[in-house]
Computed example of a mutant assay.
Amino acid sequence: MSLPVAPPGWPAEVRAPGAPEWEASAEAWLLDLCPPDHRSYPVLRRHLVVLARFAVLHVEAGQLACRRGLSEARAELRGLVEPEVVDAVVDTWLREDARLAGARRAVGLVEEAVRGRRFRPRL
Rank of each mutant, 00 (worst) to 15 (best):
P7L: 07
P7E: 05
P8D: 10
W10Y: 14
P11A: 08
E13S: 10
E13W: 04
V14G: 02
R15K: 14
A16I: 05
G18Y: 09
P20V: 11
E21N: 04
W22H: 04
W22E: 01
E23W: 06
S25H: 09
E27F: 05
L30D: 10
L31G: 13
L33R: 13
S40I: 00
Y41F: 13
P42R: 12
V43C: 08
V43R: 12
R46L: 08
R46F: 00
L51S: 05
L51G: 06
A52Q: 05
A55F: 00
A55G: 00
V56F: 07
V56L: 11
V56A: 01
L57Y: 10
V59D: 01
E60A: 14
Q63A: 10
C66D: 11
G69Y: 07
L70W: 06
R74P: 05
A75R: 15
G79A: 11
V81Q: 07
V85E: 15
D91S: 08
L94H: 02
E96F: 11
D97M: 00
R99C: 02
L100Q: 08
A101W: 05
G102M: 15
A103Y: 08
R104E: 13
A113C: 12
V114E: 07
F119M: 08
F119N: 01
F119G: 08
R122I: 09
